[in-house]
Amino acid sequence: MQFGIFTVGDVTPDPTTGVAPSEAERIKSMVAIAEKAEEVGLEVFATGEHHNPPFVPSSPTTMLGYVAARTRRLILSTSTTLITTNDPVKIAEDFAMLQHLADGRVDLMLGRGNTAPVYPWFGQDIRQGIPLAIENYHLLYRLWREDVVDWEGRFRTPLQGFTSTPRPLDGVPPFVWHGSIRSPEIAEQAAYYGDGFFANHIFWPKEHFQRLIELYRQRYEHHGHGTADQAVVGLGGHVFMRRNSQDAVREFRPYFDHAPVYGGGPSLEEFAEQTPLTVGSPRQVIDKTLTFREHFGDYQRQLFLIDHAGLPLKTVLEQLDLLGEEVIPVLRRELDAKRPAHVPEAPTHETLRAEAVRS
């Protein structure tokens, strides 16, 4: 089981002080958070991709390349790489370069994002979101696996005799997760290729994501990649902890109430009841996270959002200490003990390379 954190990279004023970090401060804090994640024993750091204020991570591979130079074990990933508005050729080359720099500690999550204006900013039509995702990934898949590619599709100029460079490290492309919160077509796409499916279920009730994940598992088996329970699933989560649960609720409430994506909706208590958001003690985080397996089956990757809504860096680093010292060791022990032997771990560069050698 892989545990990690993901960041959306928002620049949000701290509601308790009214002070917002500068873009430079926020970017540097994301690096500090990644370094701390490795220090406390987490396996994954993932960053989103956004091209609009109040977010700063417009160039994920630039940030991850910098983090790669400052870490040794951490898997570097994205919590969204926009497959619809990025050129697949550029994705292929950027992530292969990052693979080499990070000695293979790289994977990525493809998604369509949640900002409609990004499509015309990059010359695309949002009404073609699903067809773009399907066609662009098919090209990306080929670019990583074929040394010379001839290509003609609907959404970009043709390629003739094209070779993307550098080639994937050891001839093994980065593992791909397909992220979706609403689209069965993306669950089908992940299943068709035998890739991972990441359900970032931090905003909607579990029943919605149970349907998506079950579809992915059924189609994964249908396409011959293994049994349904061997499909590779990742989940999101959102936590805020203090040793005393009342202190956690009291401290986090102003951040929840003023968060760009939460404020004005359900109360903190209502939202925590309906979604994976856990505000309380480390034991409460453990207990709620363990229910994810009951809802979705055995899964391979758990990522937590901990740095959203203007939380100070000091507070975020304290959250990482609690995760690393009190939460993750218990979750790892209990979830690994319950996972059947035939259910695989999350793929890594090493396991994918060994599989390629065997085949």
Rank of each mutant, 00 (worst) to 15 (best):
T7P: 02
G9E: 12
P15N: 03
T17L: 02
S29R: 00
M30P: 13
M30D: 10
V31K: 12
I33A: 04
E35M: 11
E35G: 08
L42N: 14
P54I: 02
T61N: 01
Y66V: 09
A68Q: 06
R72I: 08
S77Y: 13
K90F: 06
I91C: 00
A92G: 15
F95G: 09
Q99C: 08
H100Y: 14
R105M: 03
Y119T: 08
Y119F: 11
W121A: 03
Q124E: 06
I126S: 09
P131D: 02
P131L: 05
H138V: 02
G153Y: 13
T157F: 13
T163C: 00
P166L: 04
L169E: 06
R182L: 03
I186N: 00
Y192R: 12
G196M: 00
F197M: 02
F198T: 04
H201K: 15
I202G: 08
E207H: 14
F209L: 08
E214D: 10
Y220H: 13
H225Y: 14
G226S: 01
G226V: 15
G226C: 04
T227Q: 11
V233K: 10
G234Q: 03
M241C: 06
D247H: 15
F252K: 04
P266F: 13
A272F: 05
E273L: 11
V279Q: 06
P282M: 01
V285M: 08
I286F: 05
L290E: 04
E294H: 13
D298A: 07
Q302W: 15
L305T: 10
A309L: 07
L313Y: 08
T315R: 12
V316H: 00
L317S: 07
L317G: 07
L322I: 09
E325T: 13
P329A: 00
V330A: 03
E334K: 14
V343K: 02
P347N: 11
T348M: 00
E350G: 01
T351L: 02
A354C: 05
A356S: 14
